[in-house]
Structure formats: structure tokens, C-alpha cells
Design a protein around this nucleic acid. Structure first.
Length: 858
RNA sequence: GCGGGCGUGCCGGAAUGGUAGACGGAAGGGUCUUAAAAACCCUCGGCUGCAAGGCCGUGCGGGUUCGAGUCCCGCCGCCCGCACCA
């Protein structure tokens, strides 16, 4: 009988509650995660960043997932010899703080600081390899004061404008919203129907960079395709022409109306001009006719909500004005139409019903002419007609004077050339992207550093007076912006002429705060926005990680802001984020009690048959859909409670193991328990290592080979961001170790050390604990280099080949790796089951793919 | 409507064109225990067979290939984003 290894000690259960804080302190004491603002020459820098949190009060599972993913990358890259910067901060301005102030009478600053303190403590318990020395909050005057400098630099550089414009007004939040913050005609936070208001606002000239923001998307090869497409659609480039139509008789002082079209080749097919309800010509019509005014009011009331669009009803009003065709001189009516948007193009179109579905619907409804001018390939010009479906494909121009016979592309070119010759317009590129309105009528934000003087107009706050600090003594008992009714704050003297003047009381959209924080992290205490040596060395962010919900807003603004900072001499690069990873959401089952109230997961109890009851009662529970965790549905799990019960490593391990990180994951109690079991198993496996009396050398060799295969495959999985696969490979190695009890201790120790080092980016505390138990003086795993697989050990001596007959698996053979084709075929054809499948027939063709498969064709 | 993604056991999922279902979860059975928990062991795509094995199987229908979950063509379904954008 061979001897058997000692069973593990029964009482040495892994005490995560003691171990985790101890290792967190050890990392901090050793300053494992600190890096200099300016890396030493020759350092290979790597900047890992997760989207910084809004300090709402507590961390949620989405944070846990986000920061765990980032931490795996940071720890792995550090082990690979990179100098890794991995900072954390707080996106600390915003409306919830003000709402809390109104509801509970606490100051927004106080509320925010308390939340930050709490969330910082929670994050620290996760054992993240963060460099807390770089921490800041965007509500720190040291931060937002530098932001004010950047704004003034942009103002001087012409990248900021004050414009009177139609804005999106959220009546519930009492503030203006950017276009990006209006979703289906509703405010992104309040859900209130957004109204149109005309206000003077500050705008960042993001449209100046529209071409570059679009073109550069092509270079972002480490961004998800999805995000790039969303941004491309948002920027919305379209080629076309602006065409001015002379009014047959001038209206007031206006002699013409300008339209934008992408189809100048269809000009001969026009039958009307249509303008938006907000267009000046519409206003002129309203001044002349009560009916027109009523129609405009109706349009405004209807808005462009989804429902209205869905019904797709085209409505119009004939103004009675007419325009002359630039080529033919013929006259066409000018309508006001509900489907024409003031925000896009010029707020006016020309209608060519035969080749545009919308125009066709409109023309049919109001009996306007429909003249086809593009002939489908192969169609007969004598009989071709448009019924209820517009022809929008390519074809050949006809009924179109000088354009006849040209294809669409050529006709567009010829039409534009003629329009330009006639001085009636020009070819243009139109963009959907609008300038970024950043004025918000709120208190808890970065003050916009300008002063309004009756004599001097808008005067920038002089650099010496920065930062413009928010006043602390504010009154939230009245509605509106407290800065407006503060007794003294807004009253200042004009820096230019010295007369009494008014401070700007609007604050910045909080998206401004998050548009450059990644740059500030490089030198967070500097007395300038960024120090050139630091940003030049550390930017761009090598790996940025966050939710897909920021695909447009935050990521587009940051791309713009980086360009603006380049234009104002602060940085040298255009793109802030070289790599982007968008994680999926954390979801959970939802539960409802008998009366329909939502229940928290910890309030229910699952029964064996899959049904559920309210804990401690027999009230039945309806198990609802698996959906994104949200407070309103109470399907949330508190990370703090999970860490208390299982430890941080368990939470991290489970969240990584469940599925690929870009997909939505389901948080399940049994899944966490499984992760916890595995951690206990590793600990027992590590503790139970002692030499056996008669080691099995062959088993030892197999174990060593498995160890090195694991090194190779875990490394590959981490590089590919397939952390679930990395977890599976660690499991495999653990299984192999457990199945190799007779291998020499050295081989088992090597395997176990490799296992914890490979798992260390994912479960850093347990890795340290096991490592220390092996050798107390071996230093921290956090400071060890990554393991390299030994190519010798990756090479197996023999391989199992699948043997197929006509592509169907009939058996397997074990052959030497370097076996010749002849040897392999001979062995394959002598395998009993293969012989049966061959059925005595001659083999016509033999295929041998080394190390993989043999296929015999009969 | 436009754009993108995805369809694999009970579930999450794995699989450079080469043994489909690694790994985990759930479930069932067993060992240990007075009992439970923990731990450990076994089973776990379907049909069929005493067994060896055989047949079927990656949404559906075709195709390319010695060989297709993977590549190509055509459908179906689900998810996401955008959308009266001229």
C-alpha cells in the first residue's frame, strides 16, 4: 500500500476577516501602488483608470464589478513590470446633493464629504491596488479652481461662446440640459418633459472639432466597435448643399430662405419648401395669420416625443409665401411642417416627394405635386411612376434639364456646381453635433468664472482672483438657484472698469468636471491645471473601464476637452483613452410580496421547489424578472454585507468568474457561496502540503506540465480580458493539484505557488496569506514579477489524437509528439473501433493534423 | 426604418476550421455524522444498447471543406443603440 498524504488540519480555516485588513495595511505600508508624477527614464508606464464614482452614499455592485475589473488589470500589469498608475477620486458635484439639502437641511458639501468618507472606507475594504495619495473630489476648490482656469483659457482661445439659443429646459430640476441629456424628449435625471426656452448660455465649441472627433474614431482600435459607432452617429456627418431660394415677394426684410439637402440632384423634382415651427418665416406667417399662429402652437405642444414620431402623422400649414426655383424660376409654396427640426441643418427643407418618403407622405396628404427625377436602373422613363413608396436608391437623372443622364453622384456634383455658379448656395458638410451648452442654474457645481458689467459686458475673472469659490452660507428654503438670492456673493466690482457688476451665478454642467479629471490625476496637487511633464508621461490612459451608459456623453466630452486642452497648450495629445472597456451591468432577480410590494433578496427565502416565501412567514413571493439592480425594485445586494460575510476576495472572485465582463451578470447567492467554497479549498490545499514517503515522479512531471500550461493559459486569458476563463484555468490547476497527492512536494509546492500568483490579481489577500504561510520572508506577492511558462514544460511528450473516419470521431490514439505520418496512420488504422468503422474498405485519403486529429476518408 | 450584437445542456458559460459542452452553479445519489452544516466521492445533452458501442445534437434551411458551433448565402428569434437628421 502506498502511503497517503496527511489530511489538512481541521481547524485551520481561512480567517479572511483577520487576513484582509492585515494585507491591505501591508500594501499601504510598503507603498506598493505609489508612482511618481514623472516616471523615471526607461519606465514602461501603464495608466489604468475606472470611471470615478459619484458619491451617492454607498458603493453598489456595479462599482464592485467596475473596480474589480480595473484592479485585475492594474495588478497584472504591475506584475508584468509596468509602472502602473491607478488612482481614485470623486465626481462630487451634482443635483442629488442639492436635493438632499432641500430634503434634510444638510449642506450639499457636508452631505457629499460624509458620503465620500463612507465610500472610501468601503472601497478600501475591497483591497483595491489604488494610489490614494492622488485622491481628489471635483468639489475641492483646488480642483474646480483649475477648471475655471481651463475655461478662461478656452474663452481666450475662442473655444467658448456665449450664445442666446433655444435650450432644453427641465421644469422639474429647474435647469437647462444638454442635447445629450435629453432622452426621448425627457430630462435624463428627472424624467420630466423637456420644454424649449430661449436663454443666454455658455457653450463649448465642440462642433469646431466635429470632423476630427469623427475621423479619429477610426484610430481608436482598442475601443468597442459599438461605442465608436454610437459616437459616429451622434456626430452625424452628412454631405450635401445649402441652397438659397428667393422669395417671390420679400417677407418683412427677408428675401430668401435657405435649406439644407443631401440630395441636390433631385432639385428638379421639388414641389414645396417646408420650414420648422420655430423658423423666422413661420413667425412671420404667424404675425399675419391667427391660423398659422395656432398651428405653430400646436406643433410646440406636440413636441417630438416618441409617440408622435411613431404615429408619423405629417402636419403642415401653407404660409401663402412662395419661392422661386434656382434653376427654372418656377414658383413653389412655403409650408410650415411639424416634421422639420429647427436644430438640424437650416431648419428648412425643400421637398422632393418622389425620392423621399417623408416628403411623399406630406405631399400625398396635402395634394402637392410628385415628379420623379431619378429613374431606377432599367426602368422605362415613359411609364415609371411613384405610388406610396418613394424611390430612394441610386438611378439615372431624368426630367431634370442639365442633369439628365447622370447618375446620382455625378448629378449631385453637377447640381452643386450650378448652384455655386448662380450664387444660390454651396456644397457643405452638415453635422448633427451641436455645441455643448454647459450653463446650469444650480448651486452645487463649479462656478463659471465671469462677471457681467453693464458697461464692459462679459469680463473674465482675473487669474489672481481664482478660484471663484462657492459660498457656504446658502439658503435652500426658496426654490431656484441659491446663488441668485445670496445676499452678497454675486455683487462684485467689474475687474475692468471697477463699477458695480454681477457675478455669473450659473455653474458648470458636471460633465465638465469629469472631462479632464484623468489628466489632473497625473499631478493632482499642482498649482496649474496639469503639469506638462506629468501629463506628457502618463497620458493617454492605457485602459479605461466603465459602463456603456457613458458611450456618448462623458466619453465624447472628454475627447473634446482633451483637444481643447491641446489647443490651449496644456497637453500634447488628442485622445485621452487609448483603450476602453465597457462592462456589463450587475443584475438580480426581483421579488414581490402578496400585496405587490417589492422585497429585498434578504427578505425572502427560497424553497426546494423553486418557489419563495417571505422569511419567517408563509406569505408567497412572486419571483420576477432578472434585471439591473435598482433601489426602486429592491433587487440590490449590499457589497458591505457580502464582504462582512464572505470577504473581499470572494466577492471579487465571484464577480469575475460568472461570465465575460462585457456582458450583464446575474448576482446569485449560490454563486457567491461557490466562490467562497473555492477560496476555502485553496487554503486547505495549501495547508495540507507535506512530503510523501514514496513520491511518484511521473505524477510530479505531469503536475509540473499542468502548472506551466496554467501559467500560459491564465496569462492569455488575462491579456484577452476573459477573466471568467482565467478563473476556470485556475480552477483546473487546483483540481490537478488535488488529484496529484503522490507527486513530490516540490512539484506540488511549485504548482500551489503558481496557482496563488496566477490568482493574485483576482484574489490578492488569499494569495498573500498563502504565500506568507509558505515563506514568511518572501516579500509580498503584490511586488513579485509575473510568472513565465517554461516552454520545455509546455511541450508534452505524447499527445492524444482524435481519429475520425469520414469526419466522425471513432477513437483516440496516444502518439509521440514528433511521430511521423506513417506511424500515426498505422496506429490509427489498428485502433479496434476504427477498424470496425472502416468496415474493410480501402482508405482513399489520409489527413494528419499534428497534435490534433487524424481523418481517414474511405 | 437605420446601425450593431447575440442564439451552445436545467443555468452562467468554454472551444487558433480539428475529440462540442472546459470550468462553475443548480439538481440527484453516496461517504463521514446521533443529526445537520462543512468536507470528500459519483452521476448529470437526448435516444438506444447487457456491454462494447451506435444514432442524433451548437436557432432554421442551404453551401464551402477530409472535417463547420466557428467560414459563406438566405431565413427566424432575442437584445442594445439611434431615429420625422432633410
Amino acid at each position: 500500500m502506498p502511503d497517503t498524504p496527511q489530511p489538512p488540519h481541521q481547524d485551520t480555516r481561512y480567517d479572511f476577516a483577520a487576513a484582509e485588513p492585515r494585507w491591505q495595511q501591508a500594501w499601504e505600508a510598503a507603498r506598493c501602488f505609489s508612482v511618481p508624477d514623472v516616471p523615471p527614464a526607461g519606465a514602461r508606464k501603464y495608466y489604468v483608470l475606472e470611471m470615478f464614482p459619484y458619491p451617492s452614499g454607498k458603493i453598489h455592485m456595479g462599482h464592485v464589478r467596475n473596480y474589480t475589473l480595473g484592479d485585475v488589470v492594474a495588478r497584472y500589469k504591475r506584475a508584468r513590470g509596468h509602472l502602473v498608475m491607478h488612482p481614485m477620486g470623486w465626481d462630487a458635484f451634482g443635483l442629488p446633493a442639492e436635493n438632499a439639502a432641500r430634503e434634510r437641511g444638510t449642506h450639499p458639501g457636508e452631505w457629499t464629504r460624509a458620503n465620500i468618507a463612507n465610500m472610501r472606507a468601503e472601497l478600501k475594504r475591497m483591497g483595491l491596488s489604488l494610489e490614494w495619495e492622488r485622491e481628489f473630489a471635483t468639489c475641492d476648490p483646488e480642483y474646480y479652481g483649475q477648471q475655471q482656469k481651463l475655461f478662461l483659457d478656452c474663452l481666450a482661445a475662442g473655444l467658448v461662446e456665449r450664445k442666446e439659443s433655444w435650450v432644453n429646459w427641465d421644469p422639474v430640476d429647474g435647469t437647462v440640459l444638454a442635447n445629450e441629456q435629453v432622452i426621448d424628449g425627457k430630462g435624463w435625471r428627472s424624467g420630466a418633459a423637456v420644454e424649449k426656452k430661449k436663454l443666454s448660455q455658455w457653450f463649448f465649441a465642440i462642433t469646431k472639432f466635429a470632423p476630427d472627433l469623427l475621423d479619429a474614431l477610426g484610430e481608436l482600435d482598442r475601443w468597442p466597435e459599438r461605442v465608436r459607432l454610437m459616437q459616429a452617429n451622434w456626430i452625424g456627418r452628412s454631405e450635401g448643399a445649402r441652397v438659397r431660394f428667393q422669395l417671390a415677394t420679400p417677407v418683412d426684410d427677408t428675401a430668401e430662405v435657405e435649406v439644407f439637402t443631401t440630395r441636390p440632384d433631385t432639385l428638379f423634382g421639388m414641389s414645396f419648401v417646408a420650414v420648422a415651427a420655430e423658423h423666422p418665416l413661420a413667425a412671420a406667417a404667424a404675425a399675419r395669420s391667427a391660423e398659422a399662429a395656432a398651428f405653430i402652437a400646436e406643433c410646440r405642444a406636440m413636441g417630438t416625443s416618441e409617440v408622435v414620431i411613431e404615429q408619423g402623422e405629417k402636419k403642415g400649414f401653407d404660409t401663402g409665401f412662395t419661392v422661386k426655383h434656382p434653376f427654372t424660376g418656377q414658383e413653389y409654396p412655403v409650408w410650415i411642417a411639424n416634421f422639420v427640426l429647427m436644430e438640424y441643418g437650416t431648419g428648412a427643407i425643400f421637398g422632393c416627394p418622389a425620392h423621399d418618403q417623408r416628403d411623399l407622405d406630406f405631399a400625398r396628404k396635402y395634394g402637392l405635386s410628385v415628379t420623379p427625377v431619378v429613374l431606377p436602373n432599367g426602368a422605362d422613363p415613359a411609364t415609371f411612376a411613384v405610388g406610396t413608396e418613394a424611390f430612394t436608391d441610386d438611378g439615372i437623372s431624368f426630367n431634370s434639364g442639365f442633369l439628365n443622364g447622370l447618375d446620382v453622384t455625378a448629378a449631385k456634383r453637377a447640381a452643386i456646381a450650378r448652384i455655386e455658379e448662380l450664387g444660390q448656395g454651396q456644397g457643405v458638410t452638415n453635422w448633427r453635433l451641436r455645441d455643448w451648452g454647459v450653463s446650469r442654474q444650480r448651486y452645487w457645481g463649479c462656478p463659471i468664472p465671469v462677471i457681467h458689467c453693464d458697461d464692459c459686458g462679459v469680463v473674465p475673472v482675473p487669474a489672481a482672483q481664482l478660484p471663484v469659490v462657492l459660498p457656504e452660507d446658502v439658503d435652500f428654503s426658496r426654490p431656484g438657484n441659491p446663488l441668485d438670492h445670496h445676499p452678497s456673493w454675486r455683487h462684485v466690482n467689474c475687474p475692468s472698469c471697477g463699477k458695480p457688476a454681477r457675478r455669473e451665478t450659473d455653474t458648470f454642467d458636471t460633465f465638465v468636471d469629469s472631462s479632464w479629471y484623468f489628466a489632473r490625476f497625473c499631478s493632482p496637487r499642482a498649482g496649474v491645471p496639469v503639469t506638462p511633464e506629468a501629463v506628457d508621461a502618463w497620458l493617454p490612459v492605457d485602459q479605461y473601464i466603465g459602463g456603456i451608459e457613458h458611450a456618448i456623453l462623458h466619453l465624447l466630452y472628454s475627447r473634446f476637452f482633451t483637444r481643447a486642452m491641446k489647443a490651449t497648450g496644456h497637453v500634447k495629445l488628442d485622445e485621452p483613452f487609448a483603450g476602453l472597456f465597457t462592462q456589463g451591468m450587475v443584475t438580480h432577480e426581483s421579488y414581490k410580496g402578496a400585496d405587490g410590494r417589492w422585497l429585498y433578496p434578504e427578505e425572502i427565502e427560497k424553497r426546494a421547489d423553486g418557489s419563495a416565501i417571505v422569511k419567517g412567514s408563509d406569505e408567497p413571493v412572486t419571483v420576477g424578472r432578472i434585471e439591473s439592480m435598482s433601489k426602486s425594485k429592491r433587487n440590490t445586494v449590499d457589497p458591505g454585507a457580502i464582504i462582512n460575510r464572505y470577504g473581499a476576495d470572494t466577492a471579487r472572485w465571484f464577480i469575475l468568474s460568472d461570465n465575460p465582463p462585457e456582458r450583464d451578470m446575474e448576482w446569485s447567492e449560490s454563486g457567491v457561496a461557490g466562490a467562497s467554497r473555492f477560496i476555502g479549498r485553496i487554503w486547505r490545499l495549501a495547508q495540507g502540503m507535506s512530503e510523501v514517503a514514496t513520491p511518484d515522479e511521473a505524477m510530479g512531471k505531469k503536475l509540473r506540465q499542468a502548472t506551466h500550461r496554467a501559467i500560459a493559459s491564465v496569462t492569455e486569458a488575462l491579456e484577452a480580458f476573459t477573466f471568467n476563463v482565467a478563473v476556470a484555468k485556475v480552477h483546473e490547476l487546483a483540481n490537478t493539484i488535488a488529484d496529484s497527492p503522490m507527486a513530490p512536494l516540490a512539484a506540488r509546492r511549485e504548482a500551489m505557488e503558481a496557482l496563488i500568483r496566477l490568482a493574485s490579481p483576482m484574489m490578492p489577500h488569499l494569495a498573500e496569506e498563502v504565500w506568507a504561510s509558505f515563506n514568511a520572508d518572501a516579500g509580498l506577492v503584490a511586488q513579485l514579477p509575473w510568472l513565465e511558462a517554461d516552454p520545455e514544460l509546455l511541450r508534452a511528450d505524447s499527445v492524444t489524437l482524435a481519429v475520425q473516419v469520414l469526419g466522425k470521431l471513432r477513437g483516440t490514439i496516444e502518439v509521440a509528439v514528433d511521430a511521423s505520418d506513417e506511424e500515426v496512420f498505422a496506429l490509427a488504422e489498428s485502433e479496434p473501433n476504427v477498424i470496425r468503422a472502416l468496415d474493410g474498405k480501402p482508405v482513399k485519403k489520409r489527413i494528419h493534423v499534428k497534435g490534433r486529429v487524424v481523418n481517414l476518408v474511405i
